[in-house]
Amino acid sequence: MIVLILLTIIVSFILYRRYFPVLGVHFINLKDLKDDNIMIIDIRDYNECNNDPIKGSINIPIAYLNRNINEIPDGDLYIIASSSLEKNVGVRFFRHKGFRVVGYSISDNNKISIEEKSLKVENNCC
């Protein structure tokens, strides 16, 4: 019985870290980003980033974040991800490393989109 409870807790924790939305980080359209001191971090895969490059961003795929964390200068971050799962993992990783994530966008084939509370909003990305 205790083993089953522990297993349930571990599985719940893993699912929470991956799929539960990160609180306090909001969708911001890339065009509306006003502060020049905010670093744009593209955590999409290299292939996806090459098909839809974002000017001025640093591309470090999510799988390589821990290895290349020293390439990211201190300061506020704006994240570009390819899915909500990737966004959640990335934001939690950066917060754990002491960075402040001010916003995010989710890229989907030349469109920046976000789905929240069954409302889908799409904006074209430059």
Rank of each mutant, 00 (worst) to 15 (best):
N47Q: 15
M39S: 14
D36A: 13
E71P: 00
N47Y: 14
G56Y: 03
V25N: 07
P53C: 08
L33T: 12
G56P: 03
I54H: 04
I58P: 00
A63Y: 10
P53L: 05
D32L: 05
N68T: 03
N29E: 15
G24K: 07
Y64S: 14
I72K: 00
Y64W: 05
I62A: 07
I40K: 09
M39Y: 09
S57P: 02
R44D: 09
L33W: 11
N29F: 11
L65K: 01
I69S: 00
Y78T: 11
R67I: 08
G56W: 03
L65N: 01
Y64E: 14
D36V: 08
D42L: 04
L23S: 14
D36L: 07
P21C: 06
Y64A: 10
G75Q: 03
V22A: 09
N66Y: 07
G24H: 10
I72Y: 00
F27A: 13
I80E: 12
L77T: 02
P73C: 02
L65W: 02
G56Q: 02
K31Y: 11
L65Y: 01
N29A: 09
I43H: 03
K55D: 15
D36R: 12
Y19G: 06
I43C: 08
L23W: 10
N37F: 04
N37E: 15
I72W: 00
I54C: 03
N50D: 13
I72P: 00
L30G: 08
Y19R: 10
C49R: 08
R18A: 12
F27Q: 09
I54K: 06
K34E: 14
F20E: 11
P53V: 04
I54N: 02
I72V: 12
P61L: 01
I43T: 15
I62G: 07
P21R: 02
I54Y: 05
N37M: 07
N59H: 02
D45R: 08
N68P: 01
H26G: 09
I41Y: 02
